[in-house]
Write a protein that binds this DNA or RNA. Structure first.
Length: 597
RNA sequence: GGAGCCGUAGUUCAGCCCGGUCAGAACGCCGGCCUGUCAAGCCGGAGGGCGCGGGUUCAAGUCCCGUCGGCUCCGCCA
């Protein structure tokens, strides 16, 4: 076999006149009768190879038998293309390789879809023939970019003294958080390992062990429903640091992220990154991971309507809710477009969508007739309403209004192309509450995770909350307890999150109590952590980045599937391998598993 | 668990709203011609019965119901 001396995509000026050997795939082939052009492709790119019938009849004949995606090796000399025949679309477009010797290493059946152009393919086809999909330029570049991202990240961790440590995949199921993937134990009938949702506890324990700074680029597994930005297995850049506070963790994160943007994209991010509070994010954007690349901010109208005759608004306010609006300025939406948006919010569970269209200085709407003069004036003022604007309202419990208007805002932003997609909007969300009340579970749950430290000055509130019997009073106290947590948001995606952890056993036990995790359960599930905290655990904190999301955002992609080599469909299926699948009864028996229909 | 969009040649799509030459286009594939193309060109050819199952109808890609699959979203995702 002729062995490669250079990648196709690397052929350049210095190769002129030289002989080289190329290995690759027939990307395209053009037969002009007496001359054949072969675009030969490998990982690094494409170069045109040429053979003339007159000068090399044997090779010509063989070349004529080539088809798309045949695997070939060839020996030839590099020459400059004749003037006027250069191809500026190719990096190697000024050169061509005159084939001297040609070897067919393998043939290929006709492909199920073209590899040589970027036609849109259904996700199913892409994944079923992922090896072909990955030959396509955009996918290849996505994975090569991802590869470079690993390299930069590893280097930065190395420079900053982080130690790479692997943590177990077969571990223990923990309550709280996502649903676990379980692995039955053959050696211990009836017992199960859980695949890790994150290496959270292990990295904390590594801090107790004194490693000071740990990192890992690691798979995490969560058995939850999929989304464009969520796969059941995904990759985190995970790290933890000892003897630090939030400023240290955030500033290291900024260094890591800005270095990646600089080196991989040539984009200079301004550091330190901007910070906004959780409350502010919700107030202004109705989301804890807002996309701030466009306006349409939420406007609070509660005070305007506090005495309103309009039943819908009044009831919402009387029930402790809010009235908020967004002004889609200059949109001149038609009735049909407004109806479409109404349908959208209804799909989120809203009853309807109140709106006002401003036309020729008049408010055109089914609801203005319920407003008093003062209300109307105040409304126009707060929303800066002008002709051409359409204002949407939501009046309900705070969470519902945030959900409805936050999603509506995003929907409009996307649908009407309001988003400046060239921009990277990078910022921290901080000042999260430590706990929130969960209606369904009828208890407090952690906003981040149960190991997140509250602010020092809020610990007293926690202790008081534990003593208080009255639930409303308890809620009130707990509401104001802030977590030492921080999320990194880029372009409306949560790409990372972390916190300073609890490093004292007493505080950890207090939080477990507030989460209504019994002492027994805490001992059973987290005993090893509590025990570790007894033996000189240093103050520590860290963060984890969603690597797939980060890479997708950097590449301007909407779905993380495009930066994962072998992702799953929305139903969690791998069309390439057919996983998940049934297994042999023998396997089940060994695992002491009986399948119940 | 729920909502929406989609499912027609190998691929990407049109046709579905207004049932009855509606089974089409492009690319790909096969054969032929052609010495400078690079989404090569020109000529010719093969290829699907419209995801699947019911129903309505004289007649169904076309209407209705169910089901499966893909995607997007809500729930869920500490």
């Amino acid at each position: 076999m002729l062995k490669r001396t250079k990648y196709c995509g690397h052929v350049c000026e210095e190769d002129l006149g030289k002989e080289l050997v190329l290995n690759g795939w027939v990307h395209r082939i053009r037969n002009h009768g007496g001359v054949i052009f072969i675009d030969l492709r490998d990982r690094e790119g494409i170069v045109q190879c040429v053979v003339e019938e007159k000068t090399n009849p044997e090779v010509f004949e063989l070349a004529d038998s080539l088809r798309s995606e045949y695997v070939i090796a060839l020996r030839g000399t590099v020459r400059r293309r004749p003037p006027g025949t250069e191809n500026p679309k190719l990096k190697t477009g000024n050169y061509e390789v005159v084939i001297k010797e040609l070897e067919v290493l393998n043939t290929s059946e006709t492909l199920p879809f073209p590899v040589d152009e970027e036609t849109h393919l259904s996700e199913e086809t892409k994944l079923r023939y992922r090896y072909l999909d990955l030959r396509r330029e955009s996918m290849r570049e996505n994975l090569l970019f991802r590869h470079k991202a690993y390299q930069v990240a590893r280097r930065v961790f190395g420079e900053e003294g982080f130690v790479e440590v692997e943590t177990p995949f077969l571990t223990k199921s923990t309550p709280e958080g996502a649903r676990d993937f379980l692995v039955p134990s053959r050696l211990h009938p009836g017992k199960f390992y859980a695949l890790p949702q994150s290496p959270q506890l292990f990295k904390q324990i590594l801090m107790v062990a004194g490693f000071d700074r740990y990192f890992q680029i690691v798979k995490c597994l969560r058995d939850e429903d999929l989304r464009a930005d969520r796969q059941p297995e995904f990759t985190q850049i995970d790290f933890e640091m000892s003897f630090v506070d939030e400023e240290d963790v955030m500033s290291f994160s900024e260094k890591l992220i800005s270095t990646m943007f600089k080196e991989l994209l040539g984009v200079e991010l301004k550091t330190p990154f901007e910070r906004i509070s959780y409350a502010q994010a919700l107030e202004k954007y109705g989301s804890d991971k807002p996309d701030r690349r466009f306006g349409l901010e939420l406007i609070d109208l509660s005070s305007i309507f506090k005495n309103t005759e309009f039943k819908v608004f009044r009831q919402a306010l009387e029930n402790g809710g809010v009235v908020k609006g967004i002004n889609f300025k200059g949109s001149n939406l038609s009735r049909k477009e407004i109806d479409e948006l109404t349908q959208f919010v209804q799909s989120l569970g809203a009853k309807g969508l109140a709106w006002i269209k401003v036309e020729d200085g008049k408010l055109n709407s089914p609801i203005v007739k319920f407003f008093s003069q003062e209300e109307t004036h105040a409304l126009i003022e707060s929303t800066k309403a002008e002709s051409g604007d359409v204002i949407f309202f939501s009046a309900d419990k705070r969470e519902v209004v945030y959900k409805v208007l936050g999603n509506l805002r995003l929907h409009i932003g996307k649908k009407y192309n309001l988003i400046d997609t060239k921009r990277f909007d990078v910022f921290w969300v901080v000042d999260f509450p430590l706990l929130e009340w969960d209606e369904e579970e009828n208890r407090f749950v952690s906003l981040h995770h149960p190991f997140t430290s509250p602010r020092e000055e809020d610990i007293l509130l926690l202790q008081e909350a534990l003593r208080v019997q009255d639930l409303e009073e308890k809620k009130r106290l707990i509401q104001s307890v802030r977590a030492r947590a921080y999320d990194l948001v880029i372009n409306g995606y949560e790409v990372g999150g972390g916190s300073i952890r609890i490093h004292k056993k007493e505080l950890q036990e207090l939080v477990f109590k507030l989460l209504q995790i019994s002492e027994l359960e805490a001992q059973e599930k987290f005993g090893f952590l509590l025990e570790a905290l007894r033996f000189g655990a240093p103050p520590h904190g860290g963060l984890a980045f969603g690597f797939d999301r980060l890479v997708a955002i950097m590449r301007g992609l909407d779905s993380i599937r495009d930066v994962i080599a072998f992702p799953k469909t929305q139903k969690g299926i791998c069309p390439l391998t057919g996983a998940p699948d049934y297994v042999e009864p023998k396997q089940l028996k060994e695992l002491h598993i009986k399948v119940v229909e």
